[in-house]
Design a protein around this nucleic acid. Structure first.
Lengths: 163, 163
DNA sequence: ACAGTGCATGTTATGGTATAACGCCAGAAA
DNA sequence: TTTCTGGCGTTATACCATAACATGCACTGT
């Protein structure tokens, strides 16, 4: 239940490898739950992993269409919804966009940092924050089911550039 | 910098009074900053206070139109944006909606609890949570400017009803 | 093999949210 | 008065999201 060690965040890393790992993880997750990682779903996840940033549903859709999949919005939204339900993809409400989860595992709370200058997106483990949130909510009798933790600001690179 | 004592949250309270207080606060805030609480802006805030719940921009627009103000979307969005910048109104991204702030003061962090059953909305002080968030972000070199903390779940009344 | 069932995909149509871009006007400043 | 600024109004359009229905495939039980 503890947070993962440390996220790649804004540091450079090997996209190829993280994508491969996540895809393998997705396969396994579907297999154990008797769900199907169909071509559209798999391709949708790949698209998000390749982009390595948040994409709007219509951007995903464009790429799916280019790959010969159905070109109407519900196609993309359904795949994204499926992946989000499994925690393989996160929805970033502030951006009306979706991003592949960088460290998918059983239920975890994500915390997003969005750079307003370069649009970089980092996903941090937010379990600790979530616990605090749950506690605050519980004090009013409210039970939390899902939470969005999203912050806008400047990433290290843009801060340096602005200085 | 400490959180306000305790929010009305889901408890009943006197709308008339809280609305009056907030409006007075808004007047004062604009005066001290040399900003203008114009008729549209004032009415927009009143509408949100009267509704006492989150309203979509188009709902606000309808009511503005009924009061003789311009009926095109930018009119509502501009007023809402102005009020949000002053912290008099909060934008709830999860709902694509806006709600009057229940305890406006200088910069404060709101935490929203949204009941998925009855759509009730509570605003809690989120300064503590925000500090934790800032710290987590700072560890990656990111500087937070604004944050959305929104949770979906069941309010006390709906929990009781579901049991 | 066959029919029945459930799930995934595809398609059409529509609804909801948000902003760009321009023109006008009033009040402050020169 | 002229000029400048900020706020408002309007048109038009872009962008985001889902309802509702049709098609088809894979699996199950007989």
């Amino acid at each position: 239940m503890a947070d993962a060690p440390v996220p790649a965040a804004f540091a450079a890393h090997d996209h190829r490898q993280c994508a491969g790992t996540v895809l393998a993880r997705a396969e396994a997750l579907c297999a154990t739950r008797g769900l199907r990682l169909t071509p559209v779903r798999r391709r949708t996840l790949e698209i998000l992993l390749e982009a390595h940033r948040a994409l709007g549903a219509y951007e995903v859709l464009e790429r799916l269409k280019a790959d010969g999949f159905g070109g109407a919005p519900p196609v993309a939204y359904r795949a994204l919804e499926f992946l989000a339900a499994l925690g393989l993809v996160h929805r970033i409400r502030r951006l009306n966009a979706f991003a592949a989860c960088m460290h998918p595992g059983e239920a975890h709370q994500a915390l997003f940092l969005i750079c307003r200058s370069c649009n970089a997106l980092a996903e941090l483990p937010g379990a600790a924050l979530r616990s605090a949130l749950d506690a605050a909510a519980a004090a009013t009798g409210f039970s939390v089911e899902r939470a969005s933790l999203e912050a806008v600001g400047l990433c290290p690179a843009c801060r340096a550039a602005a200085a």
